[in-house]
Design a protein around this nucleic acid. Structure first.
Lengths: 117, 117
DNA sequence: TATACTACTATACTAAAGTATACCAGTATA
DNA sequence: TATACTGGTATACTTTAGTATAGTAGTATA
């Protein structure tokens, strides 16, 4: 926060909102595994279900929908037999990579710090 | 993720761990408000309680403890009457600033994108 | 003597997140 | 005919996160 800003609870909340947005988008147990899997390659529903160990179809479906609504994931249905549905990261979704990378860098340092203590 | 890495569920989990660490550290309803308040200035317990609207002493105490355990926050007790306890960000805690700033930048863009649609 | 201040803690509760299990339609294969 | 594949959904449950309310010790003030 710019230290010259007025420091009221309201200003604080306003400052925090966009940060909270990111946490809400990639937080939760399954969001990161889904985003990372899709950053590697396009996946079908069942592929994701197999790739992400422990996820139930209910959670996978729920989280994919949320990510689609927020414009991070693209869903495409193909008229094959049986039907196939492809999920991919949008360009916008890919733009999260640099945020995740920044978090990861700090997190790795944190892990090393905790271990070395 | 480096696209040349082997792409197994195990590798994915390993990749995600440090990112998850950061989310766990600053996630939850009250962590960011506390960290932001302390990034602005040193606070006493009651000051934080007043500054962060809606927080209960139980949550404040719980979250401060967690942040202290993780080395982000420093706790100092002073033998005044009545006793006063000062909470401040450690240098390490301050190093989170750049991560939060990166998240905030992306989040602001996200907000503008969502609004403009 | 009663009240207020500090920095909390204890107990019991509600709300949100995630899990388990079973099931659906439509088609292909054994 | 029975089973398996696809991409899901429905219902009920457990677990975790957060809330509400009251209370603590020790001192100072009215």
């Amino acid at each position: 926060m710019n230290k010259t800003d007025t420091y009221t609870p309201t200003e604080c909340k306003k400052f925090i909102l966009p940060v909270r947005d990111v946490i809400d988008l990639i937080g939760g147990k399954w969001r990161l595994p889904i985003i990372i899997a899709l950053s590697f390659k396009i996946h079908r529903f069942k592929e994701l279900e197999r790739q992400i160990e422990g996820i139930t179809p209910r959670m996978l479906s729920k989280e994919l929908k949320e990510l689609e609504i927020n414009g991070l994931v693209n869903r495409e249905v193909f008229n094959t037999m049986p039907v196939s549905v492809q999920y991919s990261l949008t360009e916008y979704g890919k733009s999260l990579d640099k945020v995740i990378e920044t978090m990861r860098d700090w997190g790795l340092t944190h892990r090393n710090k905790i271990i070395s203590e």
